[in-house]
Each structure stands twice: as C-alpha cells, then as structure tokens.
Simulated assay, not measured.
Amino acid sequence: MKGIFTIILLFIIQVFSAQEKDYAYANGVFRFEENKAQKVFTDWTRVRQSPSVDAQILDSLQTNQQVLIIKQDETILKLGERIANWYKISYQKDDKTSEGYVWGGNLCVGYRNKNGYDFLFGLTKTVNKKDKQYPEIIINQNIAAVKVVEGNMLIDEASFETGSGESLSYGTFNIESNHKLQNVELTLKAMVSGEACGIAGYDQYVLFKDKKLIALPQLMNVGDADVYYHTEEFIFPNDKGGVPNAFIFKMEEMEKDDKDREKKKKASKTYLWNGNSYKLN
C-alpha cells in the first residue's frame, strides 16, 4: 500500500509542478458567482483600487462583512497553496456603498447562520511539514478554520488541516444536528476534495456548545477507480449502530494485488463524550 501511495504522491507533485510552469489556475473553492452575496473570512481584508497586491489600498474589511461579487477578474494570485482570482466587489460600510477589488482567497469557502450566530469556513494559510509516512518528503499543507461570529464579534475559532492545493477543487459547509451528543447545540461539517483520482478529500466535523467550537479528529477519504480506496467515517449516537455518549471512528481500505485480488482492511475505535470534551476509549 505504501508503494502505491508513494508513486501517486510523486506523480502528483511532478504534474502539478509542470502545470505551474505553464499557467496558474484558481482553486475551485475560490470560484464565486457574479451578482451573488459573499462574506469576508480573513480579518482586515484589503480592498484595492485594481486587481494587484501593488495597487492602492482603498479600505479594509473585517471578518463577516457581506459583499456583493460584481465581476471575477482574470488576474490570479497564488499565496502558498491557495490560488484565487481577484474579484470586483461592492459593499455597505458606514452607511455608504463602496467598490474595489479583493483577492478571492480572503473570502469564505462557505458560511451559514443559525440561532443568531454566523458560522464561517475558509482557508487561512499554507505551512510546510514533513510527510508522516515519508519524512524525507516536504509537503505544503493548507490550514483552514471555522469561525463563529455574533454580530461583529468573533466568539471562537477552530483550525485544522485541509491537505494541499489539489484537494481544493470542491468544498461544502453545512450545519447538522447535534447527533444526540449531550450538551451539543449543533454540528458543523466542512469538506474539501479534489477532482482527480488519488487526490484525498477531507471531512472536518466541529461541535458547537456554550459558544465554543470543538474540532473532532479529521476524516480522510481517497481512492483510484477500482484499484484501491481508503474511507473514514464517524458513527454518531443517532446513526445506525451508534452508542450513547460516544462516536465511533470506522476505517476501511481495499487494495488489489498484481493478480487482481482484493485485500481489505478494517479498523475502528471509540471516542467517549462527557458533555464537554471527548477522549479515546
């Protein structure tokens, strides 16, 4: 299994490097529709006169500021593993309507509102880290976050990893029930994934209770047609097979050998929830 992952990883790095030499393309999670509302994720996002980091700064916008996407500009900026277009926007501030350009990587991948709280999902930065299985390989790792805002005040923030740029083709952000976990008000689920085979997708569950965000262990799913797959999921108390005051992690993977025979592996572990925090049983 390690051999397959190594070959795929090196292939992805080579292909991505070759593409970067020819052109830059925006990550799918940063493609926003024109004439649609969007929200600012990065605090003090700069509004510029034109789509360039060298352009005059007209204003700065705080986290959760609503903007209207007027037009996507063709100019693309890459910061770390985040690649996004510039967007011409309009917004209301101090009883005045203003316009300018912002970089798409500073906007929310997704946002939701419930019970008077605004929940925001976005990317914050890229860091360099060693691969866990192959320390000689240095990978660029994106860091994302979920923020909860009440009015104009940031209440809490939970950060987590979201893979490399190849895993930013598609993203979703949804509010789910409390899954019958004691004292939990609701559950947030942030997801990013890639388009090609062999590119991992990541699911991040975040619990919300007493104005605090609690990130659960991250789930990773990857596969390549019918050659291999690796899946991870949680079984919550309200799911079939769930147990009270706990959530169960389940993993399954399959790999075909050179004779096309399937070799499967399964594993599970239980996390106990006491109404305030979780721990591995």
Rank of each mutant, 00 (worst) to 15 (best):
E185L: 06
E185R: 07
T187G: 03
L188Q: 02
K189F: 02
K189S: 01
M191E: 04
M191H: 08
V192Y: 04
V192S: 01
S193A: 11
S193D: 02
G194D: 02
G194N: 06
A196K: 12
A196L: 11
G198Y: 01
G198P: 02
G198E: 10
G198L: 05
I199N: 01
I199K: 12
A200S: 14
G201P: 09
G201A: 11
Y202N: 00
D203L: 04
Y205L: 02
Y205Q: 01
Y205C: 07
V206C: 09
L207P: 04
D210K: 14
D210Q: 13
K211M: 05
L213H: 12
I214M: 09
A215L: 01
A215M: 07
L216A: 10
Q218N: 11
Q218Y: 00
L219Y: 00
M220E: 11
M220F: 01
M220Q: 11
N221Q: 14
N221E: 13
V222F: 00
G223I: 02
G223W: 07
D224P: 01
D224N: 08
D224V: 07
D224F: 15
Y228R: 05
Y228C: 02
Y228P: 03
Y228I: 01
H230K: 12
H230C: 03
H230M: 06
E232I: 02
E232S: 08
F234G: 04
F234R: 01
F234T: 02
F236G: 02
D239H: 12
K240H: 11
G241Y: 03
G241A: 10
G241T: 03
G242F: 07
G242R: 13
G242D: 12
G242N: 08
V243T: 15
P244A: 09
N245F: 11
A246T: 13
F247P: 04
F247R: 12
K250F: 12
K250L: 14
E252P: 04
E252T: 14
E255M: 12
D257V: 05
D257M: 05
D257F: 04
D258L: 12
K259Q: 13
K259H: 09
K259N: 11
K259C: 05
E262D: 12
K263R: 15
K264V: 06
K265G: 03
A267C: 02
A267E: 10
Y271W: 14
L272E: 08
L272W: 09
L272G: 06
G275F: 13
G275W: 14
